[in-house]
């Protein structure tokens, strides 16, 4: 689980992009694209390089009808997976 005070940040060269042809949000990286589902997009929408993981989870818990622990676990797994693909930095 990501610590609450860790700050996720999308690195230089990677950006969230609206694919108007397919009508979906994607994470665009050099020579790769990661299509985002609604919750993935909601998580990355809150990744601004200044908000901590704890703040992001709090925002998601206010917007979604789900237990905070479940949101934190799912968001942590999602962001860790993006970090492993080198399309997200986790600053501690």
């Amino acid at each position: 689980m990501i610590d609450a005070d860790v700050i996720p940040e999308i690195p230089r060269g990677v950006r969230v992009h609206r694919d108007t042809v397919r009508n979906l949000w994607v994470l665009l990286a050099p020579e790769r694209v990661l299509p985002l589902d609604d919750t993935g997009q909601a998580i990355l929408d809150r990744v601004d390089g200044t908000s901590s993981f704890g703040q992001i989870v709090t925002g998601l818990a206010e917007a979604y009808a789900a237990p905070r622990d479940q949101i934190a676990a799912d968001a942590s797994e999602f962001l860790t997976s993006l970090q492993a693909r080198r399309v997200l930095d986790l600053k501690s």
Binding site: L34, T39, L60, Y64, A65, A75, F78, S81, R85
Partner: peptide, 12 residues
């Protein structure tokens, strides 16, 4: 809104 576990797939 309903929460669902986010999925990741990666895409020449």
């Amino acid at each position: 809104m309903a929460w669902s576990k986010p999925t990741i797939r990666e895409i020449g």
